[in-house]
Simulated scan of single mutants.
Amino acid sequence: MKKLSFLILLVFTITSLTAQTDKKLYAKVVNDSDDTPMPNVHVVNLTTIKGVITNEKGEFELTAKADDIIFFSFLGFKSIKVRVTNDMLKYKGSSTIRLTELAYALEKVVLTPYKLTGYLDIDAKNVPLRPNYRYRIAGLSTGYEAGQNAPGAISSVLGAIFNPADFLQKVFGKKPKQMRKLRQMKEDDEIRNLLASKFDRQMLRELLQVERVDIDEILSLCNYSKTFITTANDLQILDAINDCYEEYKILSREKKK
């Protein structure tokens, strides 16, 4: 009886381990309105931090296991998250992911006219300048931006000079688990390629489990200018956050010593 119980337990354990083994997920992404295949859709496994892009037929394959969360995003379409099931892994190519197109309202654009005289020397002097300045702190490799687009940066820099560890603790102290994903994301070429073409911060928010306002606050406290925060692509944002986080880890270790 004991041998039978042990055998049953062994079979159950092997079955459970096998079920948890990573497999290939094969699926197709289509436009929900007309069922047309969608190429170049960004597909990321949020559990393993691995990503791919759909081919011209809207198809993709990605390493995954049951209960992994897959994130789908494409410009102009609503991003979605899908939990992987055993059926999706078992039946190759049977899964179809549908993305819904977003409706955008055009915002009012205000153009500010500048009167030009036609003389380069005079017109060049009259063009308004909005410079951003980059400051550096001895002992830190990260620079700090200031200027009209980051008017509070100088006071932040001065605060960082006197207590840099506490300054960065405010930024990253409450999000240690999420920020540890940065290194893995930074070293994955596929993820970097995906982020290089994105500007909406959606994938970063899902990967780091933070809100858009948190990303802006992190960059602001790390003294990146408003211009950089609003115009940089997601890969540049990732690298900026990573650089600031690396400084935080160094200063935290030194403070503990």
Rank of each mutant, 00 (worst) to 15 (best):
V110W: 10
I229W: 01
T21F: 04
D35L: 13
K108I: 03
L111C: 05
Q148K: 12
E107D: 15
L62Y: 00
A124D: 12
M1K: 14
I49R: 09
V52S: 03
L116W: 00
T100R: 13
A138Q: 14
R192P: 03
Y248H: 10
T227N: 13
Y245I: 03
R136N: 15
I250W: 08
K175M: 11
F60M: 06
V52Y: 06
Q178P: 00
A160G: 07
K226F: 09
E56K: 14
K257D: 07
C244N: 01
S73N: 14
G93W: 00
D121V: 07
K81A: 10
A105L: 14
A196S: 15
K255H: 04
R98F: 08
I154K: 01
K125L: 10
N149D: 11
V52Q: 06
I154E: 04
D67Q: 14
L106S: 13
S155W: 08
L7M: 08
A64E: 02
K257G: 08
Q209I: 07
A240E: 02
E56G: 05
I250H: 10
P164Q: 03
K108H: 11
D200H: 07
D67K: 15
D243P: 01
R180N: 15
I241H: 05
L120H: 05
E254W: 07
K90S: 07
K115Q: 12
A240M: 00
Y114C: 05
S33R: 13
L7T: 06
Q184I: 12
T15D: 11
E59N: 08
T15M: 12
L46M: 02
I241C: 00
E59M: 07
Q20R: 13
K177P: 01
